[in-house]
């Protein structure tokens, strides 16, 4: 346990030894680097941009190159100067990082992602009740009070937080201000509510490849890509060179399967020529391809896509529609 009044003291202690990131109100709530806990907000539902950008930045230089004496010098970038602590990540986003780990860690390891991931300790914040209008993590088997994927989880109990430490790194953080923490009385852990399960979407979507629903849905979609940028599990990126052949940098930048260019090949051939194919790709990826590859649904129910879609497309409606139309 830690008293609410003491939380900021602890975080300021943390900020001395680590680069501290947490929710900041900067027009909207964002996870940003802070020097002191005064900059943090504690009363928020979730950030607009998911914390994935701390691990897969929207733009990131992979290496610099320059031509020199008949050869080319490559200088890799990336890496962290100091270990980081991310305060305030929600359980849905913590789960999303476990999913991104599957992508970036499986087969060949992505060092840019992994260095940031390994070098970041997560202090999670269990979700307040009631959830936001668009939240539906409980329908996908995620517990909004679960410490899964974080090193320390704090649950708001009014004037104090219940503190659950799950890793050694978490112990280290708590150890920085051991005097502020005190044992909890038994039975104080709250139980998360379970929503109506929508997990069968994964078994049903496969039958709907040819269904007219994707065309219908695509008529409403502007193809703006906001659902993919704000999705904590979307990881598509582009690689692009900036500079000249004499010197420059290679960057990776977020990209989106909602864009026509995403799959348009030299000469103009495009296997996903219209919105129908692109919309279908997105939901098949979340509910069929991702589970096929990694054994878990590729959506964590954070609801950002539904909350910020300018056309009011709600992923829960899509899931319900798939469940209603699909066959096992």
């Amino acid at each position: 346990m830690i008293k609410k009044a003491h939380l900021t003291q602890w975080l300021d202690r943390v900020a001395q030894g680590y680069d501290l990131f947490g929710p900041v109100l900067d027009g909207v709530v964002q996870f940003e680097r802070v020097n002191s806990s005064d900059q943090l907000v504690f009363d928020y539902a979730n950030s607009v941009v998911p914390p994935k950008n701390l691990f897969l930045p929207q733009t990131e230089c992979l290496f610099a190159f320059r031509r020199e004496e008949g050869s080319i010098i490559l200088e890799p970038r990336g890496g962290l100067e100091r270990e980081r602590v991310l305060f305030g990540i929600r359980p849905c986003d913590a789960r999303s990082l476990l999913l991104l780990d599957e992508v970036f860690n499986s087969d060949l390891e992505d060092t840019y992602y992994q260095e940031k991931r390994r070098g970041t300790i997560l202090i999670g914040l269990a979700c307040p009740s009631p959830p936001q209008r668009t939240c539906f993590c409980t329908s996908l088997g995620i517990d909004p009070l679960s410490p899964e994927g974080v090193d320390v989880l704090l649950t708001d109990l009014g004037d104090r937080y219940l503190v659950e430490v799950t890793t050694e790194k978490g112990e280290e953080l708590v150890g920085l201000s051991q005097e502020l923490f005190f044992p909890s009385a038994e039975g104080e852990k709250l139980k998360g509510e379970k929503g109506k399960s929508l997990e069968e979407v994964g078994e049903k979507i496969g039958s709907l490849w040819e269904d007219g629903y994707w065309r219908e849905l695509s008529r409403r979609c502007l193809g703006c890509g906001v659902c993919t940028y704000l999705c904590p599990t979307c990881h598509c990126f582009d690689l692009t060179d900036v500079g000249s052949t004499l010197s420059g940098k290679r960057f990776r930048c977020w990209d989106s399967c909602m864009f026509a260019d995403f799959t348009r090949m030299a000469g103009g051939v495009n296997p996903r020529p219209t919105g129908k194919e692109r919309v279908r790709q997105r939901y098949f990826d979340k509910f069929s391809y991702f589970p096929e590859q990694y054994g878990v649904l590729g959506c964590v129910g954070c609801g950002r896509c539904s909350q910020y879609c300018p056309m009011g497309i709600d992923i829960r409606t899509i899931i319900n529609e798939v469940i209603a139309r699909g066959a096992k």
Partner: peptide, 8 residues
């Protein structure tokens, strides 16, 4: 290498 999500 199966990470950028493009070629499935």
């Amino acid at each position: 290498v199966g990470k950028c999500g493009r070629c499935n």
